[in-house]
């Protein structure tokens, strides 16, 4: 027997196998595509609404509003000031509209990831079985090359914002789920026992003890989710998501070095702003841990 060649299935079989799966998926898409699109339509509405606000509003108001949000999160004039300067530079270099699109996109994706991710994380923390079931799915979501799940998403939804959001959320969801789970599991056993001893029921324990103590970890998860959403912006632009990703893609295709760098730097700037703001917020949440007895 020839041992140098692996006994793979024959080409004909392989082709039939692929065609069978592709065919049935195509049929599924035809049958349910419209319904699915309807289901996800609210995302499109929300995204359009936020984009409308950011792009349609007077730039100076938008700029101040963003700076105010950043300040509210971080309570740091330095970070808020840095935000203003970064956004002014972005605007000056003509990337205002794309940047606003990206911010809208990242905000919506983060919101969806938080809405799905935190309850999932709580579920995983409370049930070892859920933990065992969901963990491999998260592993897959994190390691599967994003281009692979872009294919079915595009087949169902076509090109546009909604498939972009779905692709980004798939990519950005795992950290918030994992860190919510971790945060809750790391709540010290003695504190939980004390809560038990005072007759706390499950809901009170979750809301008054576990979530507040896990919050800094959960915030780290939100931070990671935002960073990963931003990282996906360029990939998402391949399926028609407008924003800072598209000029980058254009720059790759046409070898426009400056265009690429400028838009790349704008993404970096937004990433830094979001990162510093959420981290500062996370630190503010654990003030009670910092004040150490002398």
């Amino acid at each position: 027997m020839d041992l140098t060649e692996f006994p793979a299935m024959s080409r004909g079989d392989m082709r039939d196998f692929r065609i069978a799966i592709d065919q049935s998926f195509r049929e599924f898409t035809r049958a349910y595509g419209d319904q699915l699109e309807q289901m996800f339509h609210p995302i499109q509405v929300l995204l359009n609404f936020i984009e409308g606000l950011l792009i349609g509003g007077p730039w100076i108001v938008v700029l101040l509003a963003i700076a105010a949000v950043i300040w509210a999160l971080s309570r740091s004039l330095r970070i808020a000031g840095g935000t203003v300067i970064a956004l002014m530079l972005i605007g000056y270099f003509g990337m205002w509209e794309d940047t606003m699109r990206t911010i809208a996109m990242v905000s919506v994706c983060t919101l969806i990831a938080v809405i799905i991710g935190i309850p999932l994380g709580i579920l995983m923390a409370r049930s070892d079985r859920a933990n065992a079931l969901i963990t491999p799915v998260l592993d897959m979501m994190q390691t599967m090359p994003s281009f692979v799940y872009l294919i079915p998403v595009v087949m169902i939804f076509g090109l546009g914002k909604v498939p972009g959001v779905i692709a980004v959320v798939i990519y950005a969801l795992p950290p918030i789920v994992r860190l919510t789970n971790l945060g809750i599991r790391q709540v010290p056993a003695d504190v939980l026992e004390a809560a038990e001893a005072f007759g706390t029921d499950g809901r009170q324990k979750l809301i008054d003890v576990q979530l507040p103590l896990a919050l800094p970890t959960i915030m780290a998860g939100v931070n990671q989710t935002i960073m990963m959403s931003l990282a996906m912006v360029v990939v998402a632009s391949m399926i028609g998501v407008r924003g800072l990703g598209q000029p980058v893609l254009q720059a790759i295709n046409n070898q426009y070095f400056t265009l690429g760098v400028m838009n790349g730097l704008a993404i970096v700037a937004i990433a830094i702003i979001f990162d510093r703001a959420t981290q500062a917020y996370g630190r503010r949440l654990q003030r009670h841990l910092e004040a150490e007895h002398g």
Binding site: D190, V191, A197, G199, V209, L213
Partner: peptide
């Protein structure tokens, strides 16, 4: 049991077990 714990007992722990965020 929950009512019993709430109304009839209270506990003090060796390692205090205070709620650090409160």
């Amino acid at each position: 049991l929950r009512r019993f714990r709430r109304e009839r007992t209270a506990m003090v722990f060796q390692k205090f077990a205070l709620f650090p965020h409160r």
